[in-house]
Design a protein around this nucleic acid. Structure first.
Lengths: 387, 387
DNA sequence: AGCCCTCGTATGAACGATAAAATCGTGGCT
DNA sequence: AGCCACGATTTTATCGTTCATACGAGGGCT
């Protein structure tokens, strides 16, 4: 939050490849603040002031020091700075193995968003791995206690996730992407409004004239899956499309083959859907197979909407609900930094009431739920409705 | 390399959630080595020795100190240690945005492998973002010069990539996953033998009785794409399957729609292929569409083999060539650590000749190129041939 | 003229840890 | 008995930076 590091700028605009006739040969950190001070004929502290509080230094002196810094190619040592400030300017985040398909799909987007948001205010992301939630909690605690990170970010939260409680108990500052079923008041989180996502998909389909709108979902029990199912249900009810007719929803594993099978079942029912909302792109891709298998044209005959806006969705021209991961990343990073600043702040220690933020996802419309006037070329043009 | 951190182990087996009656409340790094020393009635250095050179300390004293460490929940400060050792125990790696479909598919696998490999020898991965290769080079240089990382890992290398040269010029220790077209002798890299991957796919198909084997590839110009095409070509030639007949290869964009279209063209040729090798899973998925569209059964009528073993491949029962990313991660991490150790070592400075390692990928056989005896249930059983 | 205040710069200490050297007691050897 | 070697521990110095304070010069004020 304090200083913004916009561009790296090595050696004051000097090109990296040019170098300074091997002025910075091999050892990490050769030129120190004292070297600069000596070169500029001032004391260490003055150099420090030039960097951290330029207004305290006379313009002439500042000029001289700045030149010495550029000449020597000086860069302040991160470790020394962190040690002194007892703030490593690092945020920890676990990276999951790619077992869980669904999660993996947005993991790199999230990490990228997090890294980018952090970098804008001079912080970096430290990656670590852990076998399970318990091990992750321990690593977070260790990393924090060793001063390697000033806080951590949790991610892929399940309804009964043990991590928030453990980290709270250990005193580790953290912010979660997602939230548990209970005790959500006690810690900071940002989450995507999954229900609103499927609801907006329903709204879109209703606006396009559909009445019999199905839903392909996960088995009950996951917070994300249930929320998406709930959004569909509420929206259908709101439009008065549940009355009198049987519900066109069905559940199964999150695989394309499962999606194919579930879609077949739905289409074989009496009064089959003219459109379906899928809880994931994976299921939606499976559903598309079935549609094409039956000689139907997605978008024209049967509309399909997925969830997550994965690369596959873009490639296949599949309409999909896109999670605002970039914004989540920004929010989560900002929040965890706020928490750590507060922790280190004056010892009055006002516990800094936590952030709770629900973000609306955005429907990206493509050919699979084509608007009336005709097909949109896949991946070329995409209209987005901000909920 | 020096010490192995196997498990975090907070407070000597004590459960994290239990805590020590708020013995470690809020501020990062409250209990220092001096506190432990005082509690144990010894000097700081003795505590340090207990941790770093236990054999120098009398057993009785060691015992006493160990207990004090456990009681106070002491963890050595990472920053202080790094400052003193002038080695941050951090390796930098850029995380790419998810534009490029192909790359994104394995990015998280690679980062996970890297983080895991690093963690096993007490190092962590520092994530950063950059707009392009030039900005990445600058960030690497800055991170290294500020002492935030002891080395960096490059990734997604293109044939004319400027990064190796720039980092070499700046003196930043690095290892690359992938390699450029020229000057590969001058820096350390590990790469996947893409040609061997497609070749093994061809071998597998030939063994299953196929003779007319097609290839779906990227437009020429990318090192990865060209290598995969080359592998197909060489293997076909080796089996004598190129003579007299026209070549069944075709190129196009790396999208599923492109794969669908290319496959159609191949199947419409006189003497159509009975099997195809695709340069990516994306293309392969598109090809599967076409096969099914024509009422053919993948694996029985037309075999399809993809590349990358993406989650989609597993879900669809698509045979695919799997890159040994985990091993690449281990190798790359080990190498960059070796380089940094050498750099910091005795000033005799033997430049440590670089590592060059080509790894063979592994073919994962699934239903889409089913073995003679019948179909394998998708994703359930998968036989793997190690090249 | 003497005082105080401000501005610019310099000095000492500290952040938490470890390498190297100094200290202290103990025992073996001649 | 005296010397030296040795094991165990402490002391000192250092990594590179920044905080708190001290210092000196200059100017406005009474």
């Amino acid at each position: 939050m304090n200083d913004k590091i916009v561009a790296p700028s090595v050696g004051e605009g000097e090109n990296v490849t040019a170098g300074f006739r091997d002025a910075h040969p091999s050892p990490a950190q050769s030129v120190t603040i004292s070297d600069v001070a000596e070169a500029a004929g001032v004391s260490r502290q003055t150099v420090s002031n030039v960097l951290n509080a330029p207004d305290r230094v006379r313009a002439e002196t500042r000029e001289r020091v700045t030149r010495a810094i550029a000449d020597l190619g000086y860069h302040p040592n991160h470790m020394a700075r962190s040690l002194r400030a007892s703030s490593p300017r690092m945020i920890g985040c676990r990276i999951l193995p790619v077992h869980a398909e669904t999660v993996a799909a947005i993991q790199d987007r999230f990490l990228h968003a997090l890294a980018e948001a952090g970098q804008e205010c001079g912080h970096h992301v430290l990656l670590f791995t852990a076998a399970d939630a318990a091990a992750e909690s321990e690593w977070c605690t260790v990393l924090w206690r060793t001063g390697a990170v000033s806080g951590v970010v949790l991610y892929d939260i399940t309804p009964d996730d043990p991590r928030p409680e453990r980290l709270t108990a250990a005193g580790v500052p953290f912010t979660a992407f997602g939230r548990t079923a209970a005790d959500t008041e006690r810690y900071s989180w940002a989450d995507v409004d999954n229900a609103a996502g499927t609801a907006s998909a329903v709204d879109h389909l209703v606006a396009a004239g559909h009445r019999r709108i199905g839903f392909l979902g996960w088995p009950e029990g996951s917070s994300v899956g249930d929320a998406r199912a709930h959004g569909w249900l509420m929206a259908m009810d709101r439009h008065g499309l549940l009355a009198g007719s049987h519900r066109l929803d069905i559940r199964g594993d999150d695989t394309t083959t499962s999606g194919t099978r579930l879609m077949k079942e739905l289409l074989d029912r009496p009064g089959p859907p003219t459109a379906v909302v899928a809880a994931t792109d994976t299921l939606a891709v499976g559903a598309l197979h079935t549609v094409r298998d039956r000689g139907l044209e997605p978008g024209r005959d049967v509309a399909v909407v997925g969830f997550d806006d994965s690369p596959a969705a873009a490639a296949l021209g599949l309409s999909s609900v896109r999670q605002p991961i970039e914004e989540v990343g920004r929010l989560v990073m900002a929040e965890v930094l706020r928490l750590t600043d507060r922790t280190l702040g004056p010892n009055g220690e006002p516990p800094a009431e936590p952030l709770h933020r629900l973000l609306a996802p955005e429907l990206v419309v493509r050919a699979s739920s084509a608007p009336p006037q005709g097909l949109i070329p896949a991946g070329v043009e995409a209209r987005s409705l901000s909920r």
